[in-house]
Nucleic acid binder design. Sequence first.
DNA 1: TTTAACTTTAT
DNA 2: TAAAGTTAA
Length: 705
Amino acid sequence: MMAAACTIVWFRRDLRTHDNPAFLAAAKAGTVIPVFIWCTEEEGQFSPGRVSRWWLKQSLGHLDASMRSLGCPLVMRKASDSLSELLEIARVTGATHVFYNHLFDPMSLVRDHRVKQGLSQHGILTCTFNGDVLHEPWEIFDSEGQPFTAFEPYLQKAMSMPNEPEPPMLAPRHFTPSECSIVGCSAAELDLENESEEDSNAVLARIWRPGWSNAEIALDSFLAGPLARYGTNRKKADSSTTSGLSAHLHFGELSVRKVYHSVRTKQVLWIKEGKTDAAESVDWFLRSLKLRDYSRYLCFNFPFTHERSLLSNLRSFPWRLDEGYFKAWRQGRTGYPLVDAGMRELWATGWLHNRIRVVVASFCVKVLQLPWRWGMKYFWDTLLDADLENDVLGWQFISGSLPDGHELDRLEDPQVQGYEYDTEGEYVRKWLPELCRLPSEWIHHPWDAPPKVLRAAGVELGCNYPRPILDLLAAKDRLGHAIAEMWEREAAITAAVSGESLGNTLKVVNDGALSVQKLDPSKLMFDLLAKSRHDQMVPIIKDNAIKDIEIRNASSDKEEDCRHPSSLSLPPLKLLDLMPCGMVESCKRADVQKSLSPKSNTLHMAQNHSTAESSSAPKGRCEERKSGLVPVWSRSASTQSQWAREEGRVHFVPKLRSDPLPKRVLQPSQMKDQEAISGKIEGDDKTSIKEEIIRPAKRKPKAEN
DNA sequence: TTTAACTTTAT
DNA sequence: TAAAGTTAA
């Protein structure tokens, strides 16, 4: 056993004292130095945006206060490199160990791998733990030992795991602070918020309460209130019936395991009391929680997914690099009320209901045909709960980049969705005051409204509210053409590959990257690939970059509302230019994965390791491990499968049919998952809504006596 | 029994 | 949107 070790606990996105495995283990082992390092440079373009930084600032202050009351303040440092900073802290304090909890976003995978190696070179031992997920992403495989690429089979496997997520641990009752003092700064001194941001952020403080103890309060009130009706309420967009825990979970103020177990406890209780609806609601919530796990799972097993779609055919999609559209979307000036209301809410509050996230994202990608990465980046910069893993999953799902997501040719109609999620238009009225006097009948499609109705409501289309930026039928048509073009490009790539390199097909090196040199470099293929990469570059967003929107602004304070977050005026995204295939590929993927702790991997590791702390083993040991221990990248052995894995992606091989747009084909594993969870039939007046959409003019105004 | 019309669901 | 399931005629 380690006797009286001096341990640095490296806090990252686990800003809590309870159920924090790294913290608890360190407290047991000896003296503790809790550390937080703020290091934007390492995050590249995914450095947190304004609202996210605001939350972090509050949360750190909160944690620091708790640690102080335990006699051990949090050492906060601003640095340009986490490894050097940790080494420096270790040098000053004489710390011999560094403990931290796993993170799975691509930046963290690379950084943590480097940190672990660097520390071990200096004789410092690292131990890492699971503090972020119910199941570690390397625990769950399909029958061939490959990671799942669809949620449903993943979920089935996760639920049939022999090990139920462990119950949450309490905060350490006592621990020994290190005697060697080290100077840190306060949360305010980390420069998480600059002066120009303070005013905008003041609004946030009225709505949100960051910090771990506030997170527990939020959890309790969710358990006592909205949870019981989560199942039915999740369909409406404007209700305050969500858990509101996303940001707390993102920063790890709340442990997922704790949420899981508290919710399960409620469920057991409700089953006993015969409250079946409430118990079913818990299932829905658990599903969301496991979706969060799945987002980590995807990012870990396919660590390029923040830059490239999982389905490889999307690389050939002809995105429209229209910054005018992009700006109109960001400002909430597309002319589609539900989309615009959502974008205004996002800008004003940093938060959106998941339903609305789907609506606006879908509009961005399918109607405007903007690259999904543009939208994702904007979400990243503006969301309070911006979470790379969740956002990657969400945007890829929407854009048709996942085997089980929206189909590529699926195009949602914001008008239809409007009447579905916001039947009476209350949500739109709240965020688009210029439309607030419009009757429900027209609120989701003002362009159809008779002139006198518009006049009565004070709406002047093209003046104080824009006409639709694009006709939906035209958009549908454009989408069809774009998909056809995508398949043509794909066919060209396939032809180039198979024609030029017979018998020497794609070589995949063990990090999952395509080994380009080994391939016969067909010029065509390179052009196409290079183009598709370029297409997805996120543009630099500047206020004055846009000229071609036909919207004239009526009132000047509206303009104020729509100004962009200053965090968006980023320097050119050099990082992306330098590493188009992802930072991860600069590190060997398998190594990155191996460098994660085997502690939680006991199923596989049992024979090899007798102690739990084995991750501190020297490098050589690490490399001895065979691929069975953690999922190591390899090409799929089965060639019959319709899904082959190449270039780390899931490759869709369309069948030769007369149909120009191949339909999505289910994976064999998905076939059996057709047992839908039968929902309750509600006595809703869904019929009338549908009618309203088809024949809006005939519908009588509803809210009248 | 067949057919049409309608509902529901989706990470 | 579109496929699968449900109800009505």
